[in-house]
């Protein structure tokens, strides 16, 4: 399962896992968009805490969802980015329009995988 979604009233959180690339992003997008349409969340949180790899498809995924929720005034938050995913994500300048958080405790000596 590429994304597990928890819906709490007006707050929707999507927990992504595994590798987010062009191949996998489509399925994740479909799942999240279903919830956006159904719940019209006030805030959508996309959590990357269990994502082991991400390329610019992850950025496209976030930008596309941001567009969908801002159409009706929803807010977005991105959490759990690894240092690497953070580096990719911020190339888009998305941090200027959405709240983004890195992984809370990234142990420096630990391997990324």
């Amino acid at each position: 399962m590429p994304a597990k979604v928890v819906c709490d009233g007006e707050y929707v959180t999507a927990y992504l896992s595994g590798e987010i690339d062009h191949h996998n992003a489509g399925a994740v997008r479909a799942i999240i968009d279903t919830y956006i349409m159904k719940a019209k969340p006030k805030k959508l949180t996309i959590d990357f805490g269990s994502v082991s790899f991400m390329d610019s498809s992850g950025v496209g995924l976030v930008m596309g969802r941001f567009k969908n929720i801002s159409d009706y005034g929803g807010k977005m938050e991105i959490t759990g980015l690894s240092p690497h995913a953070y580096k990719v994500m911020t190339m888009s300048g998305i941090e200027k329009i959405a709240v983004i958080h890195r992984k809370r405790e990234e142990k420096k000596n630990e391997k990324a995988d």
Binding site: A25, R29, D55, S56, S57, V59, G60, L61, M63, G64, K67, V88, M91, S92
Partner: peptide, 21 residues
């Protein structure tokens, strides 16, 4: 160019920028 794409709305247009940086 960063953010330039012909790939539709869910492509970020960052492919070459990521490769370059």
């Amino acid at each position: 160019e960063p953010l330039y794409t012909t790939g539709g709305e869910d492509r970020s247009g960052l492919g070459f920028s990521v490769m370059e940086s």
